[in-house]
Design a protein around this nucleic acid. Structure first.
Lengths: 198, 198
DNA sequence: CCTTTTTGTTATACTGTATAACAATTGTTT
DNA sequence: AAACAATTGTTATACAGTATAACAAAAAGG
C-alpha cells in the first residue's frame, strides 16, 4: 500500500488512478443505486485492475468519503466567503449566490444527498453549516430567548440542506434569484422571528 | 413461499416467525450499524433457521420496510388525531403531544432515522407529513405569497423530522413541554411569518 | 540505464446470499 | 384421534463479491 503523505502523493500514476476511480464512482452513483455498486463495476468503468482499488482504498465508502470531503470543504469555503461578504444576514444576495453555486456543482450535491447511507458525512456537513450560522447570525445569541442557539442553528442548517434537496429533485426550478428570496424568508427571517418572539 | 394475503396470515407459526424476526432486527439495529447486519445474525438472534428468513422476506430491507411501514402508519394516525384536535395550529399543546408520543415510541424513531439508507421510506414519510401540514395549516394557502405552499410544507415536514432527530440524539432533553414550544415557535410560527411577509 | 514504485495478471481463500431436497414439527380438518 | 396440509429445520450446494498473495510488466525518477 502506497503511503498516504499529507502534502500530496507526487507520483503521477497514483494521481491518475485516484482521479479515474473518483470519476468512475461519481458517474456510477448518478446512474444507479449507490448501495448496489460493486468494486468490480468501478474498476471496470475506470479501466484499472480490480486489485488496484484495494491498493488505495479499503472500500467504496472510503472512496466516496474522499470525494465528498473534498467537495464539502470547497462548498464550505464558498459559503464562508459569501457569509463574509454579507455580515448582515438580511442581505438576500447571499441566498441567490448559494443556489447559483449549487447549480454549478450539482453533481456533487446530488451525490452528497443520494448516498445518505454515509450518515457520518451528512452529520459533519450539518454540524459545520450549523456552526457557521451560529457564528454569522447575531440574532441566535439572544440569551433571553427560549430557543437554544444550537437548536436554532441546527434548524437552519438542516432546513438549508432539505431546501437544496427539494430543489435538485425539482429540476432546479424556481431559478436561483427566487430561491434566494425563499431561503431568506423561510430560513433566515423565519428563524429570526421565531427566536425573537419566543 | 407462503402467500401474502392482505387480511393477515392466519397461521400462528407464520405470525410468530414474523414477530421474532422483526424483534431481532429492531434490537440489532439499535445495537450496531444497520448496513453491516447479516441475515445470519438476525436468524441467530431470532433463533430460527437461516432459510426461514428467505421464506418470508427477500432481504433485510424488506423486513425493515414491514416494520417501518407499520410504525409510520401508526405515527401518522397519531399525528392526524392531534391535528384534528387543534384546528388552530397556534395551539402549542399539539407540539407537546408530538414529543410525548415520540418519547413513548422512541425505538421506532431511532430506527427510522438511523437506517436512512432506506431513502424510499424517508421520502414517503416526509411527503405524508408535508401533505398533512398543507391540509391543516391555512396560512400555507395564501395565494399572494412568494413562497409556494409545497416548499413551505416540505420545509415544515423536514424541519420536524430534523428536530426529532436532534432531540433523540440529545437524550430527549429538553422535555416535551419545552420542545412543544420550540416546535411551535420555530416551525409553525416561523414558517407562518415567513409566508406572510414574503 | 538502472532502481524503485506502481500497475496488471492469475490464483485462491473467505464471507454472505440464495436455493434445493428431504426430514421433522406443528396446525387444521374431519 | 387420525389424516392431511403447511411450516420449519437440517444439510448440501451454487454463486457473487470481498480481500489478499505472488510474480510479471510497465512507468517514473535519478
Amino acid at each position: 500500500m502506497p503511503k498516504k503523505s499529507s502534502p500530496v502523493n507526487v507520483d503521477p500514476r497514483v494521481r491518475r488512478t485516484h482521479r479515474i476511480l473518483r470519476d468512475a464512482l461519481v458517474s456510477l452513483i448518478l446512474e444507479k443505486d449507490y448501495r448496489s455498486l460493486t468494486i468490480k463495476e468501478i474498476t471496470d468503468r475506470a479501466d484499472v485492475a480490480y486489485i488496484t482499488f484495494f491498493r488505495h482504498y479499503n472500500g467504496i465508502d472510503e472512496l466516496l468519503m474522499e470525494i465528498l470531503d473534498e467537495g464539502v470543504a470547497e462548498l464550505l469555503r464558498h459559503i464562508e466567503t459569501l457569509a463574509g461578504k454579507t455580515e448582515d444576514p438580511a442581505n438576500e444576495v447571499e441566498g441567490r449566490l448559494i443556489f447559483e453555486y449549487i447549480r454549478q456543482e450539482s453533481d456533487l450535491f446530488r451525490i452528497l444527498l443520494k448516498s445518505q447511507a454515509v450518515t457520518r458525512i451528512r452529520k459533519s456537513v450539518i454540524e459545520k453549516i450549523s456552526m457557521m450560522f451560529q457564528n454569522s447570525c447575531g440574532f441566535l445569541q439572544r440569551s433571553n430567548s427560549h430557543i437554544p442557539a444550537n437548536i436554532a442553528s441546527n434548524h437552519m442548517a438542516t432546513s438549508l440542506l432539505a431546501l437544496i434537496e427539494w430543489w435538485l429533485e425539482n429540476k432546479m426550478s424556481p431559478p436561483p434569484p427566487q430561491m434566494g428570496k425563499i431561503y431568506k424568508a423561510l430560513i433566515i427571517d423565519g428563524t429570526m422571528s421565531a427566536v425573537a418572539s419566543a
